[in-house]
Design a protein around this nucleic acid. Structure first.
Lengths: 142, 142
DNA sequence: TCATTATAGTTGTATAATGCAATAATATAG
DNA sequence: CTATATTATTGCATTATACAACTATAATGA
């Protein structure tokens, strides 16, 4: 059974995705959904970039990100800046309003996680966070 | 920063869902997608049950599971058994073919995970698997 | 016993996220 | 300067999902 732990990860990962994506109530908190949250987060933390870079980052189709960004622009959470060096390209900046929404959404998520993991030890939380992070970066390399 | 680890989990969880759901190639391996895989797995491991119980298990709408199960029945991976005690109810059994597909899909997933985590230590894999499992069961209680 | 209400399942409809293809505008290379 | 590549948008199709309406059966209670 040398691969027991991998088989465990395999199954639990499938279950996790099912469980998490089923929590549709995620959409209700604040005025953001998960996609919008990640987009705003990325732009907020790593600075502006065009839809191409964002699409690469999230492994999404450019058209998908284009629409997501357009929606956030329409809500005035983002604004578009033409690239002075490339007439085809734009970058995005987060607005004050966007920052507020981002913070509100993040806090709501954090509150939920905090409640959910209230019986977990600090070591478990720390370890889980680090392993998730490592897993995500491992996927990223792909 | 007493909540640093929770904030980390919060963000990395969002990223994880985005990354994993973006791997649409998931759909290509074998003849199953993730939903079908979990449905077959559940029936295979825990025995037959009706769409109601399955919907509860996965926190999905009954209609969604009904369609998923119908699709698997149509492919002859499942067959429906009328409940002898309740004329309204059915349960599902997995077929030989369904079992084969389940195994093939699981193996393909395991191979991918194995490749992905080839540089992880056994301790990390073990720990990650256990924490994912614990997290899933924590969500479940909800 | 029969009428009402509850439950299991299916099917119709709407929505939302996504990918692919076509297009437009601009940039780059030969 | 022409041909090709790149950035972004938009049209279209697909898919997973939820909700609502419906059917059939069960359970309850007068």
């Amino acid at each position: 059974m040398e691969h027991h732990s991998l088989a465990c990860i395999e199954l639990e990962m499938a279950l996790l995705i099912r469980r998490i994506t089923s929590i549709a109530s995620d959409k209700k908190i604040a005025n953001l959904d998960r996609s919008a949250y990640l987009l705003l987060h990325q732009i907020s933390v790593y600075g502006s970039s065009g839809v191409k870079a964002l699409a690469d980052e999230f492994h999404l189709d450019i058209s998908t990100v284009s629409r997501q960004a357009a929606a956030l622009e329409q809500k005035e959470y983002l604004y578009k800046i033409p690239d002075p060096l490339d007439g085809r390209a734009y970058s995005f900046q987060i607005t004050e309003l966007g920052t507020e929404e981002l913070i509100a959404y993040k806090q709501a998520r954090l509150a939920r996680i905090t409640e959910l993991l209230k019986d977990w030890s600090e070591e478990e939380c720390e370890s889980f966070g680090q392993l998730l992070k490592k897993f995500n970066s491992t996927i990223c390399i792909k």
